[in-house]
Every structure is written in C-alpha cells, then in structure tokens.
Design a protein around this nucleic acid. Sequence first.
DNA 1: ACATCTGTTATAGCAATAATATAACAGTTT
DNA 2: AAACTGTTATATTATTGCTATAACAGATGT
Lengths: 127, 127
Amino acid sequence: MIIEFEMDFNSEEALYLQLRNQIIMGIATSQFHEGDSLPSVRQLADHIGINMHTVNKAYTVLKQEGFVKVDRRKGAVIAIDIDKMRAMEELKKELQVILAKSSCKEISKAEVHELIDEIYEDYGGLE
Amino acid sequence: MIIEFEMDFNSEEALYLQLRNQIIMGIATSQFHEGDSLPSVRQLADHIGINMHTVNKAYTVLKQEGFVKVDRRKGAVIAIDIDKMRAMEELKKELQVILAKSSCKEISKAEVHELIDEIYEDYGGLE
DNA sequence: ACATCTGTTATAGCAATAATATAACAGTTT
DNA sequence: AAACTGTTATATTATTGCTATAACAGATGT
C-alpha cells in the first residue's frame, strides 16, 4: 500500500509536522486502520524525497503522542493509545486560542458548529 | 491600565506567541476594546522581564493578522480588521488537524460541541 | 527649547531547532 | 549470507527565537 503524502517545501510548517498531521488525518479518515504498518523510514523518505531522519522524527512524535507503536519487525504500526482525559485537555487548550481568534473576527458560535459538523463528516468516529 | 501577562519560560511555545495569544484572548474576553492602547514595547518588556524586540515582534504579528494598528503617537492600538473569509479558511485548516486528533482519541462530535459552547461563553461575541 | 517618550531599524551574538549527510550497529526476514 | 528493519552517533548548514546595544525620527510634556 503506497499513500501519497503532499509536502509543501515552501511552508513554514516543519516537514516532520506536515507528515505527522497527514498521518493523523489519514487515521481519522480511515485510510489507515489499527494494526496497519506505515512504510519504513527509508522507503518513505526516498518516496517523498526527504531525509530518513525527518521521517523518523515524525514517527517518533507519533509514538510519543500515542498514535503508533514501532516494532523492529513491522516498523511503525498504527496503535492508538486512548488517553481521553489528556486529549480533552489538549483540545480545550488549543480551541481556546483558535476560538478567541474566531470570535474577534465575528465568526459566530453557530458557524463554528457548522464547520465542526462539516469536518466531522469525514471522520468516521462516534456520533 | 496594567494587565498581567503570564509567561511560561519553560514552554516550547515562543514568548512572542504566548504574548500574542494572551492579547487575542484578552480582546475576545473584552479585557481590551477597540481603540484601547497596549503598553509601549519598552514598558511591557520591562514589566514582564523580556526583551523589547520580543514584544515588538508580538505587536508586529498582531498587526499583520489584523488585530492592532500601530500608531507612532499612541503605540499599538486595538483595531480589528474583519476579513471574515480569510478567518474562516484559517479556522477550517486549523480545525481539520485538531479534530482529526480528537476523533482518533474517541472524542465525540457532541463532546466537541459542548466544549465549544463552554469556551464561547467567555467570549462575548455574537450568538 | 529641551528632555523624554514613542515605534522603527540595524547589527551582532548566542542557543536551539530543522533538515541533511554518512556511517555504523543489532535484530528480522528471506 | 544478503537485504531489510529501527536506532544511534556525529557533523554540517540554515533558520529561528531571544537578547543586547545603538541610533534615528516623530510626538509629547514641561
């Protein structure tokens, strides 16, 4: 299975974070499932034309954040560690800044809700 | 008017971004109003014990993002430029990553909505 | 007028981060 | 044995964050 990752080399966002984000969104959109193996660091690095260590850093972060476990045999395997409390706290902290910005720009609560629904449609999670 | 900013010098988050975020949240929570002047870069820098240029960078970013206009006489003045289209696009892009994370951690759509309402209570914006 | 405040600009230095390039090591698979 | 896996180590380059001085031009208060 080869997945297309789209790197923006002109972005301010670090390459390893772009990769991390796309993998997380890939899990949320069911492109990756629990137990799936991600490509090896060398394979993926060659494929998208970046350094091995940059991919490795993305995998290490994903491990740290509880999205994958890395196995010497199978490489990085999707394995979600659900620490919901921690996730809720992070979510709240991130939303506080983002919503403050939105509120200042006169985006209504209803509009935010609509946007949430729209995005959550693609994420096949719970209701 | 002196406002207390709480800097975390051990945080990974850059000081100028911490300051930017607290000012934006200050606007959202009506601690600052349109037309209010922020402290001068030197005053604020001395007050919180950081360099003048770090404060200046926060102000410059806030100007860039349309939250303040800086006047040679009055310093940095709260002046919100409402580019709603742009704000909506940014919001969507930021939410996509955050909600993907949340979805993976089994945070339901309903729980996100509750959190939004909770946060928006403090932001005296539109309904 | 003079001193003091404002933002702005320039230059420099230091530390940390991002990304790359090799290289080697220890397991696993074929 | 050869080819793959993640892991670790070292080194280099570029960029960023933060600090430190210093100076300039415009506005303000006495």
